[in-house]
Amino acid sequence: MTDTASPATTGASAPESSGRSRRVDSDWVRRNGVFVALVLLLLFNLLFTDNFATEGTLRLQLVQVAPVLIVALGMALVIGTEGIDLSVGAVMALAAALIPLYIGYGTGVSIGISLAAGVVVGLIAGVLVAHVGVQPIVATLGLMVAGRGVANLFGGQIKSIRDESFRELGTGSILGIPYVVAIAAVIAVVVGLVVRRTTYGRQLVAIGGNKLAAELAGLPVKRVLVTTYVVSGLLAAMAGILLAARSQASDPTKLGLLMELSAITAVVIGGTPLSGGQVRILGTVAGALLMQLITATLIFHNIQDSWAQIVQAVIVIAAVYVQLGRGTTRKSRKT
């Protein structure tokens, strides 16, 4: 145990100081690349896209990105703990599927039940990860498969939802800002504050940064992990409800499909490393906006939707590559 430490690990912090300037550069790119890209793309559209700078267009972009962003915020927390949550898409479908079943008891009740369903799924994921020790990817994969099944069982086929206040939630606006967008913005601010200002947020980041050290510092590691998956489930349910409200229907087979991938992409592009220990809320917001804008830009310019996916694929790889920055340890060891 103690004897296997090679001088590389026992000797001071010298390895860190070498190549510092390069790290600063790649660090800067990792942190701010997404903002730069977002600004550039905005400029491009302002210059070359007709009718881009209209209220309608911008409003539509924001409305479309809102659910992705809400899911991505929960995902950012999970990734901050060095986890992953594949179940979010299924949770969205489940939450949406529950709405038409309980809307008769009142809009608030049905929304409450939907959110509770998200919490339950998150709780199961959290317990599996934190207490049983199942890898996050497997635990949430199982929940993803089962969750969508349950959603389909409840929801069956596409159901339209006729409820005035529910419709208002999806399509109405306050001070000219669509509710959907306002809710996403509020959630982003709250999550940002939670990460920065609360014990939970600090502990979450510490656990993601060095789980062993956090355990030895007496942090409630399991409780924090469970909470994080619960929050992710809750936010996914929220996003599902908003999507259902916008379309005034729930479609359990389609709703939230591939959402986990979009959310992960937004988080990763936003500069939150998959290895945990950091949560970049502003970056995640920018990441979600960037992905939305890329898709929109391609559509504006009559480039097929399929290209959006291919471009997205390339961007994801590039983003992760930038994160790894200075090449891999493997390589440097070889040469």
Binding site: T9, G209, A213, G277, Q278
Partner: peptide, 12 residues
């Protein structure tokens, strides 16, 4: 004993 693995949270 192992400052890096069991002590510091490097990015904090």
């Amino acid at each position: 004993e192992d400052r890096k693995a069991e002590g510091i949270i490097p990015d904090l």
